[in-house]
């Protein structure tokens, strides 16, 4: 059983669907970062670049 992948930003476990494919985007439930599946074997996740919304204040 392959180990459960962890989010590269907050180290929380990331639960992938069985149907996950490479370069698919998934969201980490703990820190809501967008993650990109870089490879399946070995399983690698990387933070997907996100457009920084400027809060204006």
């Amino acid at each position: 059983m392959s180990t459960v992948p962890v989010c590269p930003v907050c180290d929380a476990e990331v639960h992938l669907q069985g149907t996950t494919i490479v370069s698919e985007l998934v969201v980490c439930d703990s820190c809501s970062c967008m993650l990109e599946v870089r490879s399946l074997d070995p399983l690698q996740l990387a933070e997907a670049p996100q457009e920084q919304e400027d809060w204006g204040e």
Partner: peptide, 10 residues
């Protein structure tokens, strides 16, 4: 790093 804080607080 940010991940150190996540690990410490979790």
């Amino acid at each position: 790093q940010e991940i150190d804080l996540w690990k410490t607080y979790r």
